[in-house]
């Protein structure tokens, strides 16, 4: 299930399909859902770097998503910056935030990191809500849409957004893939397995974990940057919340940690389900969608800890040792 040399065909076919599909099926709602699948997929790949490869469960990714989104929105509204520049600024701020939080709490073992990510996300939201003049407080920010404007990345229909989101997804996937096959990837695998042994081969635990957290933050903030560009609207509750952070984690864990396709599979399964339940159940029973995910999450944790991707994987041919690093 990787870009292995012997069968690059399937990924290429999928990619071709992804490129051609929106040209054939012009269904606005469906396209909207697929775009969501893509950018939530991006967040899940972002999560996998720190939560999967580094084995440090983050429940605060919403803050990086918000950092990306607010950087684009404020950059545009305050300084008339194009979202492209706004996104780059967002990436830098998100990485600095990850560096700051990471260098404090990644030193500690166990659940402290998870806790601190929850707390940090709360802090960022409290700040976003408090500094109303800049952030719009609970009302959030609206980016006025005045028709097609390439500089502002405003388009008349969703097709360009579709390709931007697809591009971001590929970037996220490729980054994840490269990380898993890189020296950093091996170091993270070592740390995940045994911290003492990792030290005995000269691995600086802090450095590697912080690096992973920064990469994770950067990827996630890109998704946020895209989100606000696409939706023209942002508020603290829908981005920088525990719910958002949990959703990101869910997608990655359900799909399968530390696997090339896992986060995408997770997004493919969860986002449509979320849309369906939102469309048909939300008005009747808010929370129904989350209830379903929670049950699936508990079941996956207990019975398929490697996620749904592993179910496909074990159905396929026996794994090569070579793939193990990425798979485990």
């Amino acid at each position: 299930m990787t870009f292995s040399k012997n069968k690059p065909l399937i990924p290429l076919l999928l990619l071709a399909l992804a490129i051609v599909m929106p040209l054939i099926f012009k269904h606005p709602y469906l396209m909207r859902v697929v775009i969501m699948i893509f950018y939530f997929g991006v967040t899940a790949y972002g999560w996998d770097v720190i939560g999967g490869y580094a084995g440090q469960v983050s429940v605060g990714q919403g803050m990086f998503f918000a950092v990306g989104a607010y950087s684009v929105a404020l950059g545009y509204l305050v300084s008339n910056l194009t979202p492209v520049v706004g996104a780059l600024i967002g990436v830098i701020i998100a990485m600095l935030l990850a560096l700051g939080i990471g260098s404090v709490v990644l030193r500690l073992r166990g659940p402290y990191f998870t806790l601190s990510t929850i707390a940090a996300c709360e802090v960022v939201r409290i700040l976003l809500l408090h500094f109303k003049e800049a952030t719009g407080g609970p009302e959030g920010l609206v980016i006025p849409y005045n028709g097609y404007n390439l500089y502002a990345l405003h388009f008349a229909n969703d097709l360009p957004y579709y390709y931007i989101a697809l591009g971001l997804l590929l970037v996220a996937m490729y980054t994840c893939y490269r990380v898993s096959r890189s020296k950093l990837g091996y170091q993270l695998a070592a740390i995940r397995n045994d911290e003492d042994a990792a030290k005995s081969v000269g691995i600086n635990l802090m450095k590697s974990k912080v690096k992973a957290f920064m990469i994770s933050a950067a990827i996630t903030s890109l998704a946020g940057a895209f989100y606000v560009t696409y939706d023209h609207y942002i508020d603290p509750f829908s981005t920088c919340s525990n719910e958002m952070s949990v959703k990101i984690l869910l997608i990655a864990v359900l799909g399968g940690r530390r696997s090339l396709w896992g986060p995408l599979i997770g997004s493919l399964l969860i986002i449509p389900l979320m849309e369906l339940t939102n469309a048909y159940l939300a008005s009747v029973r808010p929370g129904a969608a989350m209830l379903i995910y929670a049950m699936v999450l508990v079941a996956v944790v207990l019975y398929a800890p490697d996620g749904i991707a592993s179910v496909f994987k074990s159905a396929g041919k026996e794994q090569k040792g070579d793939d193990k690093l990425a798979a485990n």
Partner: peptide
């Protein structure tokens, strides 16, 4: 336990 937390939260929401 995180899954349980989300479960209980959404259960009461429902």
């Amino acid at each position: 336990t995180l899954g349980l937390a989300i479960f209980f939260r959404s259960l009461m929401m429902v």
